[in-house]
Design a binder for these strands. Structure first.
Length: 278
DNA sequence: TATAATGTTAGACT
DNA sequence: AAGTCTAACATTAT
């Protein structure tokens, strides 16, 4: 469900609520998510996004730790932690101000003094790992800020991997998923089956430019709500109004009028215009 | 009832 | 070696 724009939306919203708040309790309702030992009592510092991961920085457990001892504490149990959360396909975060009934599929509850944060996840693919680790770094770590054509060409090298699979490969580029890969390539006029290494610099520039429109607009729209995506406050995003190919098989291409086609590529639905994506 | 779903990974195969 | 495909994870919606 969530790709970069959806995760970015959640992080921005979490940052308006959580920093400075102490975790009063954590309840894990789905044992696949692991254990919450040693998390209660910590204070949230900042929330950030790494690709599709949400990183919640949680301070050391012991209040009143003397300044000179900070360095040691960092390496001890009880030192600062990153709570790394990945929502995978159907994970959602939902902020509840009061103790209203839990929505179906609630898998984890973080309680704060002003409300509680719920992880809702029907398919139970979401992962939660508190620790000192960071998400695996990618050469293009944040396409929202930095997505230059030259770097894309360098990283693509002479790979024969289809350009769509390349854009979605988290080892190269962090955050792009199926919807936005389809949309970026359509706007750039590039066939998703093209080997990544076959794109010329001018074509990578089109990809850069398209991503520069598609991704920030999706963030501004608070994501794409085609089925169940909702933001932290339960609101739908509006980016579905801007989709030009994803899920639009048979509808006319916004650019040339030819009917949009759907095919399967590396196991994923792939929508494109057979006439103007070359 | 069969299929597909906004993600990732492992393993088998080419 | 690099890329493709399938299955797996668990569940819902059409």
């Amino acid at each position: 469900m969530p790709e970069l724009p959806e995760v970015e939306t959640l992080c921005r919203q979490l940052n308006t609520l959580l920093p400075g708040q102490q975790i009063l309790a954590i309840e894990i309702l789905d044992p696949r998510l692991g254990t919450a030992a040693g998390l209660a009592g910590r204070t949230i510092e900042a929330v950030s996004r790494q690709g599709k991961y949400i990183k919640i920085g949680a301070g050391a457990t012991t209040p009143g730790c003397k300044p000179g001892r900070e360095k040691r504490r960092r390496t001890e149990a009880g030192g600062p932690l990153n709570l790394l959360l990945h929502l995978r396909m159907t994970g959602r975060l939902f902020w509840q101000r009061d103790e209203a009934p839990l929505p179906p599929y609630t898998r984890m509850i973080f309680s704060f003094s002003g409300g509680r944060l719920l992880l809702i996840d029907p398919r139970r693919f979401a992962t939660f790992s508190p620790g000192t680790a960071e998400a695996a770094p990618a050469p293009l770590a944040n396409p929202l800020e930095e997505f230059p054509a030259r770097r894309l060409r360098e990283i693509a090298g002479d790979r024969r991997l289809p350009v769509k699979a390349f854009l979605m490969d988290q080892r190269f580029i962090a955050g792009i998923g199926n919807i936005y890969a389809c949309e970026i390539l359509h706007k750039a006029g590039i066939d998703p089956r093209r080997p990544a290494g076959s794109l010329k610099l001018a074509e990578w520039r089109k990809v850069e430019k398209s991503a520069g429109v598609v991704l920030p607009r999706a963030v501004a729209c608070r994501g794409t709500s085609i089925s169940d995506w909702r933001d932290l406050f339960g609101m739908s995003g509006t980016n579905q109004d801007h989709l030009e190919v994803y899920g639009r098989e048979g509808e006319p291409c916004s650019h040339c009028g030819a009917p949009i086609e759907r095919m399967k590529m590396s196991g994923r639905g792939t929508w494109f215009c057979p006439s103007c994506q070359e």
